[in-house]
Amino acid sequence: MDANMTFEQFRDHYNSEEVCAQTLFSIRWPEGFRCPRCEHRQFYRVQSRRLPLFECRSCRKQTSLIAGTILEGSRTPLRLWFQALFLHAQPQGISALRLSVVLGTTYKTAWLICHKIRHAMSKAETSKLLTGIVRVNCGVYGRPYNPTIYRHPQEHPLLIGATMDNDCQISCIKIKQISDEHLSYDRITPMGSHDFVQQHVDPSVADIHVVIQKFSLHRHWPLIQLCKRASNWLNYSFNGIGAKHLQSYLDQFCFGFNLAQDNTNPLEFLFRYCASTRTLNYPALISRDDRSAHHKRNYFSSLKYAS
């Protein structure tokens, strides 16, 4: 897939279900079909449904083209999925509201497509650890108008980690929300930084420096600037994000940044990951933990007692 194609050129090229189905088949099985049950390569093609089924000649298991991908269970045409993937691979991304207009779908359908694609991006980011020279710094998304020592519901503490070379150039980043158990008011506890390192830094890393104090003299300013850049992107492209889904948007930012540093074709990479990532269903998506009400209650209770 050519990363230099315009959206119009891409849409004109993938303008039919047949072309999209052939492309998805080649992405999912680049070396030819392989049965997920017995790994046999010979199959029958069943055309009785909207999308083809592939029946293994050995064990007779039938496999859908979209089974085991983020598209599984979707009734949205493949050509619209392809357009959505193209738009998400662009640096600026796209909001669900804008996507619904471009695709001509309902907002709910576009919203679910967006989150399924971000789910694949998050899986891609999880599979890669920070290596080499690693620097970690605290950050924040969403600043209250009247800062206090208590955390405002619109203030989300973050940790950003980066792989850096000897010239302090950043090649890979991870930005993560901090859970309530690792926060003391608006400050990140040492255990929070320890968990970040355990989960996102390669165990072989020897050169690592972590700063969790907001006003430390040893702050890593390039990381602070990247946090601000991510915040500006979230506010400009999506008009701000709440705590419940913030992490998936942060993963999308890191996904795009890291691929740009690697000079990797983001469109091709995203298609490959979406073809190998199991779908995120709607109940799992809406059941994500939303702590904003808890923060709001604690924040205003603290103001009441302080007065």
Rank of each mutant, 00 (worst) to 15 (best):
Q42P: 01
I212Y: 04
Q177G: 15
Q199H: 10
W29G: 00
G73H: 11
L217G: 08
F255Y: 15
S193P: 02
S237Q: 14
W233I: 02
C35H: 03
N265H: 11
F10C: 00
L226V: 05
I286D: 01
L217F: 14
G132Y: 13
Y236R: 12
Y44Q: 08
N4Y: 14
R229N: 13
H200I: 03
C168W: 09
W81Q: 06
M191A: 12
D290T: 04
R34S: 15
A206P: 00
F33A: 01
I117F: 09
T189G: 09
I66M: 11
I66G: 01
D12F: 08
F10K: 00
F257I: 05
L103M: 13
Q90H: 03
T277A: 10
D290F: 14
Y145P: 00
T279S: 14
T105N: 07
I224R: 03
R28M: 12
L234G: 00
E125A: 08
S26F: 12
D251E: 14
N232A: 14
Y14K: 07
P147Y: 13
F54L: 10
I178N: 04
F300N: 09
M1N: 06
Q154N: 15
L234N: 01
Y141P: 05
S193L: 03
L217R: 13
S184M: 12
Q177C: 15
Q22I: 06
A243D: 03
V136C: 07
K128I: 15
K108I: 08
P153F: 07
P36L: 14
A21K: 08
F196P: 12
Q169V: 12
A284K: 13
I212G: 01
C20A: 06
K228G: 15
E18I: 15
T126W: 01
L259M: 05
K174N: 05
L78P: 09
E17N: 06
E8H: 08
Q90T: 06
R49Q: 14
T148D: 05
D207N: 12
Y273P: 00
G161F: 07
